[in-house]
């Protein structure tokens, strides 16, 4: 494991913790897209099918359990928790996220490294993760006042993807056969989706102003 990968995992972990902290302590999910959270839960469920079959390391297994547990509990909170549910902006969060599932699945059936069930599901999770943030970005654009925690959550998620790209570059030069076009291209697409958000995030940070995205 290299420093970029570790930093990427840690920002990813931090993003999830920030979100859970917000939901759990303030009992509010204002500004958070349930659609994106549902997609993330599907992403982890389909990617970590190997959790009981392939042991990589204790770190790996623990992190997988954390991401699975946190993504499903966030969805549970927004859908089922009495107070949190009330703060959910259903009318703003209108992205048709189900329409992302089928194209990603078909693409995974067509373009994969190996045509096996686990591998296709793994590839599907990569394609789906690349676009899973879209409902959240649309919701951010509609939200007049983005609160700090929501802004930090999206920023940390974007940072995680950016750090993973550095991790791939590092691994490509240090590990002899490390060439994986599918995660690289989908990861790059995913990171590019954050570019616009990053721009406004840094602008607001530089000017010490509240984060607001242009409509």
């Amino acid at each position: 494991m290299n420093i970029f990968r570790l930093a990427g995992d840690m920002t990813h972990l931090a993003s999830v913790l920030v979100l859970l902290l917000k939901i759990h302590t303030i009992k509010s999910c204002a500004g958070i897209s349930l659609k994106t959270q549902e997609l993330f839960a599907i992403v982890f469920a389909s990617r970590y099918l190997d959790i009981f079959t392939d042991f990589i390391s204790l770190y790996n297994t623990l992190m997988k359990l954390i991401f699975l547990g946190s993504s499903f509990s966030i969805v549970w909170y927004i859908r089922r928790h009495k107070l949190v549910r009330r703060s959910y902006d259903k009318d703003q969060d209108t992205f048709r996220h189900y329409f992302l599932l089928l194209p990603c699945f078909i693409l995974a059936l067509l373009i994969n490294e190996k045509f096996t069930f686990k591998e296709v599901m793994w590839t599907f999770s990569l394609y789906l993760e690349a676009v899973a943030i879209l409902p959240q970005l649309v919701l951010l654009q509609r939200t007049k006042n983005i609160d700090n925690l929501t802004g930090q959550y999206v920023f940390l998620l974007g940072a995680y993807r950016g750090l993973y790209i550095l991790n791939w570059i590092y691994r490509y030069f240090t590990e002899p056969h490390y060439v994986h076009w599918i995660p690289w291209i989908s990861g790059l697409v995913q990171t590019l989706l954050y570019a616009d958000f990053f721009y406004y995030y840094f602008e607001s940070w530089k000017n010490n102003k509240k984060l607001q995205l242009p409509a």
């Binding site: 995992d9 990589i56 790996n60 992190m63 991401f67 793994w122 691994r171 590990e175 002899p176 056969h177």
Partner: peptide, 10 residues
């Protein structure tokens, strides 16, 4: 699991 496998990533 080989060293150069993307499946060891999260």
């Amino acid at each position: 699991e080989t060293e150069d496998d993307a499946h060891d990533e999260l």
